[in-house]
Write a protein that binds this DNA or RNA. Structure first.
Length: 229
DNA sequence: CCAGTCAATCAGCACC
DNA sequence: GGTGCTGATTGACTGG
């Protein structure tokens, strides 16, 4: 794929920027790496001392990730507990840099990066997997927080608008406390200006105080709904 | 079917 | 000892 080439170049650039002082190994042969993967830790250590400039971890004996030690059939422990690889600052920084550019890598890129960092292909793969998962998790948390704030704002706004509406209604109606207690349904059924809603026998009661209040309040309601607010 | 990815989970380690 | 971070494993899913 043409992408491979381009991306490998960018990987190399990334690494060049970050770890300029680390010379890119001249055609570091895979067999060499593979050999180390197949050796038991001690044997590998011996070879590493000879062949590789290793990082702090290896110097401290902290670089433990060996497939032979954790072959698929030997589930967890060959010899009790496993040690955990801790990436060096430089390794982490390089991985981070590249992750910023590409959150996923193709196999060739992973291999190239693994060789650059003295890691295994699988380790790079796992690192990117975890990084993606944790980035996603963080983003989800951020989104969640954002939505929570939005919800709070909308609730406040809703409350504020309700209050405002209530105040406006009270102002227009004047000092008649009856109106506030009237439900929309009630005002609609009794309104004289809205003939289709008017029940036939309600005409008789038009002149009562309560109906006058209801009528006026419904007229106000209509005007508010139609264009006022 | 296989390789790659993801989600869930485990587990070691450092820090408090 | 509890907790957070992070490397590693496993199983399910998916596209080619």
């Amino acid at each position: 794929m043409e992408d491979d080439e381009a991306c490998i170049t960018s990987l190399s650039l990334g690494l060049g920027i970050r770890g300029g002082h680390v010379p890119k190994k001249e055609k570091q042969k895979v067999p060499c790496l593979d050999l180390s993967f197949e050796l038991c830790p001690k044997a590998e250590e011996a070879i590493d001392v000879d062949q590789h400039h290793h990082d702090d971890n290896m110097a401290k004996g902290l670089c433990f990730n060996h497939p032979i030690e954790k072959s698929p059939d030997s589930n967890h422990s060959n010899h009790g507990s496993r040690k955990k690889l801790k990436l060096t600052k430089e390794q982490s920084a390089t991985l981070e840099d590249i992750f910023k550019l590409h959150s996923t890598l193709n196999p060739a890129q992973k291999q190239a990066l693994a060789e650059q960092l003295n890691l295994k292909h699988r380790q790079v793969e796992v690192w990117f997997q975890n990084r993606r998962a944790r980035t996603k998790l963080k983003q989800t948390e951020v989104d969640c927080e954002f939505l929570k704030k939005c919800c709070e704002k909308l609730t406040d706004e809703n409350l504020r608008l309700k209050k405002e509406l209530q105040e406006l209604r009270a102002q227009r109606i004047g000092p008649t406390p009856l109106y506030i207690q009237l439900s929309k349904a009630t005002t609609l059924t009794i309104c004289s200006s809205c003939e289709k809603l008017l029940k036939p026998n309600e005409g008789n009661n038009k002149g009562t105080i309560s109906n006058i209040v209801r009528n006026s309040s419904h007229k106000l309601q209509n005007s508010i709904e139609l264009g006022g607010i």
